[in-house]
Design a protein around this nucleic acid. Structure first.
Length: 979
RNA sequence: GCCCGGGUGGUGAAAUGGUAUACACGAGGGACUUAAAAUCCCUUGGUCCGUAAGGGCCGUGCGGGUUCAAGUCCCGCCCCGGGCACCA
């Protein structure tokens, strides 16, 4: 019987479904293991061969763990709220729910064909009301919580209110004012709190809630009509769609993730994540230690943050961000016009412009002076857009002698540059060395930077002019979207004050709207909904961002159908953290940070018993595509237009395109004689055609160069790179008449690119499965190289894994008849088996799947050579192969006479006794270069090996009578003779 | 600029400091076949010497170093990929 992948794979797909093979129970005595893939957004394009890479790897681990006696949770679902479906809805009027449903169905079909062991009974979709009911519920918990810096955890807001009622808000309590709402809110007494109006009380509480509404600087994207998070903005444009983004201040729902900055940082230490992933998060959180310093201005002060309080004596001016609230206050009347013009210009500059013009120094003097806390000197206060409103206090103390940006600013505006360190050449540049010695006159003189910093802080604290301070780059996360296709925020407004919807009202279901666009007055689409109110009070109209649903989904899989709770405590206690989380490294600072934040919050609430979601994280690399590129001539028609002459140019658009070799594209300008002549000829030909097409046309036509463009890889022969010209002309109307410069076949060039529809280089897994089968695809994806590395897809190579499966299959057959003998295996056969079991078991632990597949190939080759058809060898090998190639393994397992699924089989143990060798062939090297081999029994001692080697005539011959200086013998490894 | 990865045959790649290039693709040669496909076998880092058997030399981005021994460890560069960036 020949290996028929279609029959076998279809058969087992159906069997598995019928038998519920991958159904997972929560109550079992077995130890648990939780393997999770980052769930996909179901896009309209479907999966390409790059997508399943991580899913295959995690599926292998899941199956391996099952064989090893674990109860494995390995679920899949969809991150199904998101912009593309909504964009599509706006264009076509189709409800996003409908396209989402269709896309998810297509994903499911594709995933099913690959043979994943997902328990689909546990599928979650973030856009299902059953699911987002609990996303909304968690939002309410966040809204009803504040962060207590003393207890270092989130606590119910009711406790804070109780405290305000008994002791008011004093001292340290004010420290919870983190993030963008860092506004001066003075202390108040209990009596004052009680005297506040309801409205004032609610306003105060907004400063403490973990989900809060405030005026915040946001990334506003007019084209998308929405606010974007920092990580959704790349180079000043939206990550999706590339639309311009501007800074704008508007009322905005935010999440106080900054309260968790330190814990998010500390938590990284214990995680088994890659260093690059942890570093990306550390950078993003951006902790810096330093001091806050107050510079008095009349009866008020400017507060700055600095990491270098040791350079305080070098301060020669203060710079405020243009957006700083104090700018208006400190601008003198004489300077007002100039400052206001500058501020206006600076705020209108886009992020992109500010970034592009790093070298351009701009700024303006406010006319005011601050007092230096140590010297009492007058320090001029400037405004400069190199200072960012959103970092630190939005103001810096400028030390041109110690900071290059300050130095440039000082140089440009001719401000004093004071040396702060010994040996600095401040005429040329600032001295930013951290190992320098301070030279300023006073108590810091002669101290090293590291010692001067604490000393300066000490002095500041003594004077009450500042204190040690830790600052984070991390910002609070924008949580509202002016969009339709997202979770409604369960908030209603009474007198413009937000109130939480009662839990009994959840889920707050996304309403129907007539159009998915903002209203005429610029309100979000939800404002179009009829009766969008709660007991007559208006409901919130923004929706949650994409990361809301994905921040806790791993918990829902544990108990996906629970109607009374997001997941039962029993299920959570059993499944605990994710043991292995697989996904793309692009989520480093987005999803993975929010996901950790929500987990810590739920932990603080006592809702879950752990505060990190995923113990181990593995990033699969990207599978790149191979693009095929063609080159064509760029044509220009020209002529001299006489004043009174009716004149028609040849219409280049209507001319046939001319395909040219890459050589011509690259060497335009230095073309060889033959190519030049060929182009002259073709220009002539086109001119003739052009004049026929456009009667009366005159003037000239010439090629001005060549351009490259992508052609669909399906139109190119893999091996020869020859373009299928007929297919090309049919599929591309603009090239329908195209001709090839040198008659004959047209040869394209190959290039490795990101795999995407746009580059027409997408390889669809369905096509591969149709031809080779899912097991071959799975093996091949793993065989390509190390999981975490990016690598180009090359369909050719798949032949190797396909041949392997045929060879493996044939081990069970003789003349197409199943033939497995019960005979006892030989030593050689046992050795092949156990070497393979050892390698594969160890490799799965290291997630080194490419080398496991290679080992299976070696085993099949060797057993083929040994003509081994023995059950005792083949049966364990089949179990070991099952995680990688489940369909063929299941089929062979049943042919071996088993009625249970192979997934229930116990993982075969390898035994060292089968791998022991009696002899070892020592490489004998002279001065480190291997020259010969000598075989000795493994039991021989170092000395015995040495004397045996030296006694060997061939060795003696090479020594030419000399005595070796040294002989190194490493048992069972190498002998090195130093001459 | 700073922080992470990574550079090994024609290609994807393998290698606890111990025989560099396992496994696979591609290429070349052969067997089977009327033929093709499929399958199987052999060769395949470069270079030099030799009719041959065989042997020499060079080789893991570049330059140094440590070591009996370096793709692997250390120092200094170059290149590629990713992340962050007037961050005070």
């Amino acid at each position: 019987m020949a290996y028929d992948h279609k029959r076998i794979e279809e058969k087992w797909r159906n069997e598995w479904r019928k038998r519920g093979t991958y159904h997972v129970d929560n109550d079992t005595a077995k130890p648990k293991y939780y393997v999770l893939d980052m769930f996909p957004y179901p896009s309209g394009a479907g999966l390409h061969v790059g997508h399943p890479l991580g899913y295959i790897a995690s599926d292998i681990v899941a199956r391996f763990k099952r064989h090893s006696g674990f109860n494995v949770l390995h679920p899949m679902g969809y991150d199904s709220f998101g912009l593309p479906a909504e964009q599509y809805a706006i264009q076509t009027g189709q409800h996003p729910a409908k396209t989402t449903e269709e896309n998810a169905a297509r994903y499911r079909e594709q995933m099913d064909r690959i043979g994943f062991s997902f328990d689909w009974d546990r599928e979650v979709r973030t856009s299902n009301p059953d699911y987002y009911k609990w996303t909304q519920w968690i939002f309410l918990q966040l809204f009803n919580s504040w962060y207590d810096p003393k207890a270092d955890k989130a606590r119910p807001i009711s406790e804070l209110i109780a405290r305000f009622e008994s002791t008011g808000c004093q001292g340290q309590d004010a420290e919870v004012l983190t993030g963008d709402v860092e506004e001066a809110m003075g202390p108040f007494t209990a009596a004052e709190w009680k005297s506040f109006s309801e409205r004032t009380q609610q306003m105060v509480l907004q400063h403490f809630r973990l989900a809060y509404l405030s005026d915040a600087w946001v990334n506003w994207c007019p084209a998308l009509g929405t606010v974007l998070a920092n990580d959704e903005v790349k180079d000043g444009v939206s990550e999706r769609g590339g639309h311009p983004v501007e800074r704008k201040r508007m009322p905005q729902w935010s999440m106080r993730i900054t309260a968790y900055a330190q814990r998010l940082l500390d938590g990284l230490d214990e995680l088994d994540w890659t260093t690059s992933m942890k570093e990306a998060q550390r950078n993003w959180i951006g902790r810096s230690t330093g001091a806050s310093v107050k510079f008095a201005v009349d009866n008020d002060y400017i507060e700055v943050f600095t990491t270098r309080p040791d350079t305080l004596f070098g301060v020669s001016f203060i710079t405020l961000a243009p957006e700083h609230v104090l700018v208006g206050k400190y601008t003198t009347d004489a300077q007002r016009a100039e400052v206001e013009a500058y501020v206006k210009a600076a705020t209108n500059r886009s992020e992109r412009e500010r970034q592009a013009e790093v070298d351009k120094v701009t700024g303006v003097f406010t006319g005011s002076y601050a007092k230096h806390p140590f010297t009492g000197a007058d320090i001029p206060v400037w405004v400069g857009d190199y200072v960012l409103a959103g970092y630190g206090t939005g103001a810096v103390m400028a030390v041109p002698g110690g900071d290059q940006r300050d130095w440039r600013f000082a140089k440009h505006f001719n401000l004093p540059i004071i040396a702060v360190t010994e040996g600095a050449d401040i005429g040329k540049e600032a001295d930013e060395r951290k190992d320098a010695v301070i030279c300023s006159e006073g108590f810091l003189k002669g101290l090293k930077v590291a010692d001067a910093i604490p000393r300066a802080i000490q002095e500041l604290e003594k004077l009450g002019a500042g204190e040690g301070r830790i600052n984070y780059r991390l910002r609070d996360a924008a949580f509202g979207r002016q969009r339709y296709w997202g979770e409604p925020i369960p908030i209603y407004y009474k007198d413009d004050i937000p109130y939480p919807l009662p839990e009994s009202e959840l889920p707050l279901v996304l309403p129907e709207v007539d159009k998915f666009l903002p209203t005429e007055t610029g309100e979000p689409p939800l404002a179009r909904a009829k009766n969008w109110s709660y007991e007559g009070m208006p409901l919130e109209t923004t929706t949650m961002p994409g990361w809301a649903g994905s921040s806790w989904y791993f918990l829902r899989y544990m108990d996906p159908k629970n109607e009374g709770r997001f997941a039962s405590p029993e299920a959570i206690n059993y499944w605990q953290q994710i043991d292995l989380y697989m996904g793309g490294s692009e989520h480093a600072t987005g999803h993975l940070l929010y996901f950790r934040f929500w987990t810590k919050f739920l932990f603080d609430q006592g809702l879950i018993p752990f505060d990190e979601p995923a113990k181990k994280l593995v990033n699969q690399g990207m599978i790149q595509g191979t693009s095929k590129k063609a080159y064509a001539l760029a044509l220009l028609s020209h002529g001299t237009v006489g004043a009174n002459v009716e004149f028609k140019l040849i219409e280049t658009d209507r001319l046939p395109r001319v395909l040219v070799p890459k050589r011509i594209y690259e060497s335009w300008g230095t073309l060889n004689e033959a190519d030049r002549q060929a182009i002259v000829d073709v220009e002539e030909r086109l001119r003739t055609i052009g004049k026929e097409q456009t009667p009366g046309a005159s003037g000239y036509l010439m090629a001005t160069g060549a351009y490259e463009f992508h052609v669909d890889i399906r139109l190119v022969d893999d091996k020869t790179n020859e373009l299928n010209l007929d297919g090309f002309r049919t599929s591309r109307p603009d090239y329908s008449e195209s001709i090839v410069l040198e008659n004959g076949p047209y040869i394209t060039t190959s290039e490795v690119d990101k795999m995407s529809k746009r580059w027409m280089n997408v390889v669809n897994p369905d096509d591969i499965i149709e031809k080779y089968g899912a097991d071959t695809l799975r093996l091949y994806e793993m065989f390509l190289g190390p999981l975490e590395q990016s690598k180009p897809w090359d369909t050719h190579g798949i032949e190797g894994t396909s041949r392997f499966l045929k060879k493996f299959w044939n081990l069970f057959f003789e003349s197409d008849v199943i033939s497995v003998s019960e005979e006892a295996p030989t030593e050689a056969e046992q050795k092949v088996l156990h070497a393979t079991l050892k390698k594969v078991t160890e490799d799965i632990g290291k997630m080194s799947f490419n080398t496991s597949v290679a080992q299976f190939m070696i085993a099949a080759n060797e057993l083929g050579a040994l003509k081994c058809h023995k059950r005792d060898i083949l049966e364990p090998l089949t179990i070991a192969l099952a995680p990688f190639a489940p369909h063929i393994a299941e089929e062979l397992w049943s042919l071996l006479g088993h009625s249970d699924s192979i997934t229930t089989a116990k993982w075969p143990q390898w035994h060292a006794r089968f791998l022991e060798e009696s002899n070892f062939s020592y490489p004998i090297s002279f001065n480190g270069k291997t020259r010969m081999h000598l075989e000795f029994p493994v039991g021989l001692s170092k000395d015995e090996v040495e004397s045996a080697v030296l006694a060997n005539p061939e060795v003696q011959q090479r020594l030419e009578g000399k005595t070796p200086k040294k002989v190194i013998v490493v048992p069972k490894r190498i002998v090195n003779i130093v001459v």
